[in-house]
Design a protein around this nucleic acid. Sequence first.
RNA 1: GCCGAGGUGGUGGAAUUGGCAGACACGCAGGGUUUAGGACCCUGUAUCCUUAAACAAGAUGUGCAGGUUCAACUCCUGUCCUCGGCACCA
Length: 1007
Amino acid sequence: MYDHTQIEPKWIKTWDKNKTFKVDVKKAKKPFYNLAMFPYPSGEGLHVGHIIPYSGVDTLGRFMRMRGFDVFEPMGFDAFGIHSENFAIKQGIHPKTLIAKTTQYFRDQQMKRLGTLFDWEREVNTTDPNYYKWTQWIFVQMFKHGLAEKRKAPVTYCPSCKTVLSDEQTEIAKQSQPQGLTDKTPGVEPSAPGVVSVTVCERCKTPIERRELEQWFFQITKYANKLLENLDHLNNDVWGKDQKIPEKDLKNGINWSEKTKRAQRNWIGKQEGIEIKFSIKYQESLASSDTGRASIKQDGITVFTKFPETIFGVTYIVLAPEHKLVSQLTTPEQKKAVEEYINQVKGKTEQERIAEGKTKTGVFTGSYVTNQVNGEKVPVWVADYVLATYGTGAVMGVPAHDERDFAFARKYGLPIKRVVLPKNSHKSFILKESVPSDFVETLKKNGYENISYDFNGNIQVEFNYDQFANSFIKLVAQALDAKYFVDVVGSNNIFVFKDKVMYFTDSHDEKKIIGEITRRWPDFAKNRTLFPLMGFQWGDEVAETTFYHDYLCFEENGILVNSKGFDGMQSQKDGREAIVEWMVKQGWAGRKTTFKLRDWCISRQRYWGPPIPMINCSKCGWQPVPEKDLPVVLPFVEDYQPTGDGKSPLAKDKAWMKVKCPKCQGWAERETDVSDTFLDSAWYFLRYPSVGLTDKEPWDRTVTKKWLPVDIYIGGNEHAVLHLMYARFITMALKDMDFIDFEEPFKKFFAHGLLIKEGVKMSKSRGNVVNPNIYLDKYGADTLRMYILFLGPYEAGGDFRDTAIAGTYRFLNRIWTLINNYPNLIITSKEVSQKLEAVKNKTVKKVTDDLSSLQFNTAIASLMEYYNFLSDVVTKELPNQPKQNKLALSCAEWDSAIKVLVLLLAPFAPFISEELWTQINKKSLQSVHDQPWPKYDESILKNQEVVIVVQVNGKVKDKITFSTQESRVQKEVEKAVMNSPKVRATLANKKIAKTIFVPGRLINLVT
RNA sequence: GCCGAGGUGGUGGAAUUGGCAGACACGCAGGGUUUAGGACCCUGUAUCCUUAAACAAGAUGUGCAGGUUCAACUCCUGUCCUCGGCACCA
């Protein structure tokens, strides 16, 4: 039995003392920057989830080290931020005290036990003034280069954390709706408990609010294009001029996974579209301000759209409540209503808005604008379904061809104008009592096959060609009861009555048709449009339509109608092109690209972060703190809890706030907000190689050039969008400011999977978070590391089971026993000896390949197979051992076999391999981790005996062994196959029609 | 709704990219060893069926339904389900 409790501490001490893994950042010849995401030191300590990136990175690092690279593997602590602060509040301990304690625990009690290459002399701690001095310095540079600005902005606010959150720090939670409401409402059927989506704070899961505050922003949107474009360049060797891992060694190349890139692309959300201007003509009804009137006259309203071809279908315009023109456009009569609406929207929390579902609300401003393509006047509305932050904050309402506009128009009775028709297809709905019961038979006889029924037994018909419509109308009219009518929706909207057929193309038709229906159905008079009818909704509230929905609100490609000279064109193809070209030529529109990406709100009204290094002078405005005065040290504030009044706790320290303006030397005030934690982590990888530099520069340029960009970065997928985006942005900005020489920080990013505990997601709230120390104590670091990598594919994570980890421990024990019991086995059989050589080479190849592509689980499996084989060798050879003094003998083959075993094991299980290595090489003081990685001999692999699979009609009947040469010659194989009794029996007297031969693989006889 | 990933034994997962499905491990069963438990070692372990039983033979089998092929977990078409991410983005 091997005793990890003895071996592991011993080697930690020895390696530490000998500085075995120390890298000289200046002298290193083959630098390999091997990075795992640093943790935030919460009070709970590391959990096993953290071990995934560390095991993976370290195993790769040790492998690369043995392959001759100078592996730099740093570690640090992301110790500022809300996580840490909230934990401090919970514990009632000042974060400054608490963080010192927790980082110490993380480092000394947990991380150091893992046996990693982490270079603790280059630890980074974001709360160290020597570090955040430079975080602040970056802020100052951003300001100086026009990338930071303070502006009032609607922000997401967490009432529990009492701080502003970036959109990225929120998430959608599903909450079940309070059921009482619906159950008690008279006339409403008790419904199943509804599930509502609620936007909540990512950390504390409290529903968020919206507020307006003055905030510092980094203008990441200026880099939107570059952030997007570079994603296509992150492939293989674009940054690989001095590529450190040969591509064949890292199978996936130096790049990011498609998945991560897609997530980033999605987040940036580039959209090509058109901006269209609607002119303002009806000035007489405008609000009083003269200046307002003048400017409106010139400006008009610009909307952004991806569907310019529907321009002739515009029946109204919507502005976001925050839109600049709202107040100017509101007429005196509508002023009260609009103001009330805006206040209501502002006061509404996100939760309430979402709880309302997608129900649209809005008010009319009283103003109209002109649609320049046809001179129509269309009303301007204000509605909160339009976002102020996307596009121009204004939208053209095309209810016939946009889902949201459709819902809005139906709610407020706005006209719906079709300009795109579905190509040649129709749907019709027939009440069952309106036709004879054999009507369906009649339809079927006439070739209508696509017939179904709704839950009441009413008839639903779909058919595809225009010529069918006429015969359908005839059939229906013949069969129809005079009290009823039937509607047909499609490229024509038709209402069929017993004695007449009415076509519905515009609102004029609509009134007539409503009149006709009302004659039969007086109840219908209260409807302003036909749409409720076609949607089967009779109440005031128009819900989602069902059967006709796709045709009534048609969002796909179709044929343009009612569009001047563009009728008949394909809406989303030539029609779109033609209309855009025409509008641009007329000066009414311009092509425009927009992004979903928003500017990065940097301000946090909290205590535990680097103070934003800015000074507000009443005379000179915002001034950056002079670089010589950095860092702005975070003052010790006893009562550091967030105030909730929109100000940071730092605002309590009036003496600290008071400062001379760097420009005019008059009295001024410091900014009291601190910066977002994501800024701390957006540049930490730049600092590691230069830790220790304190004076003039954040990093040593030569050293940086040598080590960066990072060769491989491993971390959780939850950071694939935010952290990675911010780090890329800061890197690009620094490159443009000429502080570094590259614009992409990470050559390769690898997102590892997550751990599940006995089938359930591991989380603090479930209380099933596992402290790795339990396993470190029981089984040791080697076992834990290896087990975690063995669980499943690295990118997929796996299920952590107590019983399974014991299996890995047993495996290490077996190796220990094997090598201790049989250090000098003598191989007597030539056959065994040959086989041994083959298996050894095969294993080396497999482990090498798998490690290169981070397929740890299969690498470990092949190590286990290798062990199983060695164990068989022992069993076979044991009876043949010579009777002499065993210690005096040795066998080169066996010696090499077990050495290879230990070498291949070393990256995974550094402690036990080191111990075994010293046992095998009694005299040598060399570390196993300084040994070269074993090589394999391709020629041995190629010259093995080959098993050919023999199939008859694709079914395996026999397996025959050949030499490599023979296995490639069809004649040889065929000859042997014909001698096989099994094959003969199966073939009997059948004739072979065809023979498929795959050299070295199989032979298939087809009869 | 949109985007992405995935469905293989009792379980976690393999499968050279179209060529022996289930490597490796867990669990389970039987045996050995042990005073006992644990640990360790050996053997077996997809399902069904034939046989008194063993040896063995056969059939079925990678979510479901089709297709291509001498040959499909792998390719194509359709469909169902699960898990992630985004979501009033015009």
